[in-house]
Design a protein around this nucleic acid. Structure first.
Length: 254
DNA sequence: ATGTCGCGTGTGACGCGA
């Protein structure tokens, strides 16, 4: 079983790339972030023709998430249960016995901004809800754009990020708290080359210079740890014309 | 090199978010 996450930065723009990627990578489930589409504009027909069931949850201009799966997803939930949120950031469903949560974590903007306060509250809400989800589902995968680089090795220039979002101790403590609930960073179960990232800023020739962050993650519950066969970042789509700024991340379960 | 995108507004540059 293969599961994947991809922040597409507008599904309207990136739909052809997503469909091409699914032909080359026929995963069992794919969660998307930053679809940036209201629900009436979601391309259900094209995704259905590609052989996928889909649930989606969006809003105007920003955010928006989707859950694509080969088999129908059960018990679909939109956003964090118990956390009132005006923004469309989470979609969850059970696919082939695995609880799949796709999430677009808040960016946070700056450590002293209201958006960072929201990010912290959102992370509190996520953690509380994840704890209850884990009680109901032994086999659980939380994946998406976390907007957190968990360690210095996940950042191209840790010194330059001191005092900025994505690498702050507060955000990293929240990431660790998710692990402490009984989750494992699937990517770190394996050896990878140093300076492996999942996002590169469009500015400053970030991708060409490999100035990136590893902020897109796949966390699996302890019950799934032994089934994880591989976890890879697929940089190929980042080399497309008009790419998303994020690369997909794929986990293979036995 | 603040060397980029995408959206909405509203028809074309600009503000915003990332």
């Amino acid at each position: 079983m293969k599961l994947a996450t991809w922040n597409v930065n507008s599904l309207n723009v990136r739909l052809p790339q997503v469909l091409d990627w699914l032909v080359a990578n026929p995963v069992d489930a794919l969660v998307l972030q930053e679809t940036k589409l209201t629900d009436d504009k979601f391309p259900t027909l094209e995704i259905g023709e590609a052989g996928y069931q889909v649930h989606w949850f969006g809003q105007k201009t920003y955010n928006g998430v989707a859950l694509l799966s080969r088999t129908p997803a059960q018990d679909v939930v939109k956003n964090i249960v118990g956390f009132e949120d005006a923004q469309a950031r989470v979609i969850a469903g059970t696919v082939d016995g695995v609880r799949v949560i796709g999430a677009y974590f808040p960016n946070g903007e700056a450590l002293d901004s209201d958006k960072f306060v929201y990010k912290m509250a959102w992370l509190d809400g996520l953690r509380a809800w994840l704890a209850t989800e884990l009680k109901a589902h032994d086999k659980l995968v939380l994946m998406g754009d976390f907007n957190i680089a968990p360690e210095d090795r996940d950042c191209y220039d840790p010194a330059a990020f001191v005092g900025l979002t994505h690498c702050s101790p507060q955000e990293r403590a929240h990431f660790q708290a998710l692990l402490d609930l009984g989750m494992v960073d699937a990517y770190r179960l394996f050896d990878h080359p140093p300076k492996s990232y999942s996002w590169w800023d469009y500015r400053n020739l970030g991708f060409r210079k490999n100035q990136g962050l590893r902020i897109d993650h796949i966390l699996v519950s302890e019950a799934l740890r032994a089934q994880v066969q591989a976890c890879e970042i697929d940089k190929l789509p980042r080399k497309n014309e008009r790419p998303s700024d994020h690369a997909p991340v794929v986990v293979t379960l036995s």
